[in-house]
Design a protein around this nucleic acid. Structure first.
Length: 725
DNA sequence: ATCACCCGGGG
DNA sequence: GTGTACGGGTGAT
């Protein structure tokens, strides 16, 4: 049988691996009962010996002493205890027990926390969506690094549900009103019939992919709950075989980069791929073809990958490379869950190149970006945790600028091995994508995110293959390159207006192409002309009179605008403020230069005044006035009576639980009220004709005007005076 | 003035 | 078993 490895996952009840093979005429389920993961423990000989005695009292498949290359970048072997647990779920349990036994100090554990499917695929030498011949074993008819690969035709459908709730607060207990499966709509019937109709439609149309918006966060748990309430839970089968209605992993709130996030329970389907189109970052960013490309590279099956972040994927690729090189993977407890872009990370850590912006408007500004500066540095200078300050090349000719660390000359580091092909693939895909092929654009887009996040995963001390010295070295090279670039630009007649990490804004009459070409040749890292602005405004901090690093807006020669840091870009800005600010920007976009820009300001503020009038006279869609905000903790932990507290209080009265990290939506009724019900109204309860805090909304509108025009003498006070209603 | 708390990526 | 950026904003105390 020939086909594509469509999905792979462990069955923790039966302790075998399941693969679904998509063939020309259907889908086949394949069970592999011969896969049993082994993990390794390293410690002193004495400790290992006594550990072996303890561990051998447990039911195991195998226990032995072996020699393994546990040090990355070193081929010498060390004695380890190899443990093959009896059951899949015992890997973590035994590891925890052993770790505790050694006082969290005596033992180093390896190959504990690798996704089983990923490990299985790597050990079998296959990968997701690989074309294979399946007999007694997998015979690969495909290459993991191939840039052209055949893919099966995949049938897809989308499920959507209309909830019959009394008000707009959707609850798990509200009955189903209608269900849409692809083009079929089930409605005007008993709830049981609606649910059965959906199941039957899925069975008949037999899709490979099931898209659901908020499938994890609402739809699937809701449908299971309704089926249960109607006593037909066992009939709800949306996959290609029966499965539990319980999620793969339960929901949880967790702390990530200074804020609380909520990850809902995750639901997978057996034999089909469920993709939550509302919650899959990778799918939203790139689409199915991007997901498939990354699944192939990372050995994370598509359905799983759809729920993960780019950082997790890059980390998986590093793990795979280590496994292929014969290195067991050190157990890394409590990895950061998600990614942060190089810009975010670097600006804050003060490691990246920064040239404080010259506040105000500037004409004819050239923006140059190194698209993959940090990944390129890692590859070019071979920066990796094991190559940096390596013992084998103390006199290496490669020395990190400013810091002077030596870098290995003898072997290519893990990070470079992983990133080099990613950079190369991205370049090729990007080119083809620009020629109009959407599939290549999707692939290029997903690899872009991989590259953007790769630095965070190498520089961060908590990352699996992270090392603080890597972080320092990459930024040191980055600064050197950017300073040199600025110098070269100046020789071309430009003046640096602003610079940050990998971008430069230049004012002057040089030739953009000539300077970019010069930089490309001199630095040897791809640089791109982001564009030439007819004009660009760098904004100051509202409180102090210094340039803010990431607040600006400008108009490119092609008519597009680039906007950063102001209200339109924030998720907690009500729609009406965004609309008003967009309208002002739209009016400004007719200005060809700074002179015309300044003449246009009154017209833009006039438009703002119209929005303020609408607010005052009640000529607004209440939906446009809704604030959206994420809550960071449970109600009782808040110290101040903020809008979030008022919203949470009101929701609690309506018996709605909000997990830390989830959002609340509300209409501001009276910002001065110290009572929850007086302060605001939950968005789902808002009705036509509801009153709202006109004064406050007008103030928000005018603040959005201030954001744009503060450098031109229009502060809040003046706008209120001249354009107040 | 100081403290508390939220956002940052894209569409 | 444990820590968690930082600059920029708004709003509460």
């Amino acid at each position: 049988m020939r086909g594509w490895i469509f999905d792979t996952y462990p069955d923790y009840q039966k302790d075998h691996m399941v693969s679904w093979i998509k063939t020309e005429d259907g889908v086949d389920k394949l069970v592999d009962r011969k896969f049993f993961p082994t993990f390794y423990v390293h410690g002193s000989r004495k400790n290992l010996k006594s550990l072996a005695d303890v561990v051998s009292t447990h039911k195991l498949r195998d226990l032995s002493f072996e020699r393994k290359k546990i040090k990355l970048g070193y081929d010498g072997k060390f004695e380890v205890l190899a443990v093959t647990p009896y059951r899949y779920k015992d890997v973590k349990l035994l590891a925890k027990m052993i770790d505790a036994q050694g006082g969290y100090r005596d033992f180093e554990l390896y190959d504990i926390d690798i996704r089983l499917a990923q490990r299985y695929l790597v050990e079998r030498g296959i990968f997701p969506m690989a074309y294979v011949d399946v007999g007694n074993e997998f015979i690969l008819l495909d290459e993991q690094m191939a840039m052209e690969y055949p893919l099966p035709e995949l049938k897809h459908t989308e499920i959507g549900v209309k909830v019959g709730s009394a008000n707009k607060i959707k609850k798990f207990n509200d009955p189903v009103q209608a269900i849409k499966v692809g083009e079929r709509v089930f409605k005007d019937a008993d709830e049981i019939d609606l649910l059965r109709g959906m199941v039957e439609e899925i069975r008949l149309t037999d899709p490979d992919l099931v898209y659901m918006k908020n499938g994890d966060s609402f739809l699937l748990p809701y449908l299971y709950n309704r089926a249960k309430a109607n006593g037909i839970l066992d009939e709800i089968q949306l996959g290609r075989e029966r499965q539990s209605s319980r999620p793969e992993r339960s929901g949880r709130s967790y702390f990530r980069y200074g804020r609380v996030e909520y990850k809902p329970p995750l639901y997978t389907l057996r034999g089909r791929l469920h993709i939550d189109t509302g919650n899959s970052f990778l799918h939203m960013e790139s689409g199915l073809k991007g997901l498939i490309e990354l699944a192939r590279l990372s050995c994370i099956p598509v359905q799983t990958l759809a729920k993960l972040s780019p950082g997790t994927a890059i980390s998986a690729m590093q793990v795979n490379q280590a496994m292929k090189d014969g290195h067991p993977v050190m157990w890394k407890k409590n990895l950061p869950e998600d990614f942060k872009t190089a810009k975010e990370l670097m600006v804050t850590d003060r490691g990246g190149f920064i040239y404080e912006p010259v506040v105000g408007i500037h004409d004819r500004v050239l923006e140059l970006d190194y698209t993959s500066l940090y990944p390129s540095i890692m590859v070019r200078f071979n920066i990796s945790p094991e190559t940096l300050k390596c013992r084998c090349c103390p006199d290496s000719k490669i020395k990190v600028p400013e810091i002077g660390y030596n870098i290995c000359e003898k072997q290519v580091g893990l990070i470079a091995k992983v990133l080099k092909p990613v950079i190369q693939r991205r370049m090729v895909y990007k080119k083809r994508g620009k020629e109009g092929d959407l599939e290549y654009k999707e692939r290029s887009d997903i690899l872009k995110w991989l590259l953007v996040c790769s630095f965070g995963y190498t520089g961060y001390k908590n990352a699996r293959y992270g090392r603080i010295e890597c972080h320092e070295s990459i930024t040191a090279y980055g600064r050197e390159i950017m300073l040199r670039s600025a110098e070269i630009a100046e020789r071309h007649g430009y003046r640096v207006l602003h610079g940050i990490v990998d971008s430069l804004w230049l004012e002057g009459n040089g030739s953009p192409k000539a300077v970019a070409e010069h930089l490309r040749n001199d630095v040897g890292i791809p640089i791109e002309i982001e564009g030439v602005y007819k004009w660009i405004v760098f904004l100051p901090c509202k409180s102090m009179d210094v340039g803010a690093m990431n607040r600006y807006y400008g108009l490119f020669e092609n008519g597009e605008m680039k906007i950063r840091g102001i209200e339109t870009r924030r998720s907690d800005t009500p729609e009406i403020v965004k609309k008003a600010q967009y309208e002002m920007l739209d009016i400004l976009s007719r200005a060809e230069n700074s002179h015309e820009f300044k003449e246009t300001i009154p017209e833009a503020l006039g438009a703002l005044k119209v929005w303020a009038e609408r607010v005052v006279y009640g000529d607004v869609d209440l939906e446009d006035l809704i604030f959206t905000s994420r809550v960071s903790k449970p109600l009782e932990e808040y110290a101040h009576f903020s809008n979030q507290v008022a919203a949470l209080t009101q929701l609690e009265e309506h018996m709605v639980d909000v997990n830390p990290g989830e959002i609340v939506r509300y209409l501001l009724v009276n910002s001065e009220s110290m009572k929850a019900s007086g302060r605001l109204k939950i968005a789902d309860l808002v009705e036509d004709g509801d009153e709202y805090d006109k004064k406050k909304y007008v103030e928000h509108l005018f603040k959005a005007g201030e954001s744009l025009f503060q450098p031109f003498g229009y502060d809040l006070e003046r706008i209120e005076e001249e354009y107040g209603v």
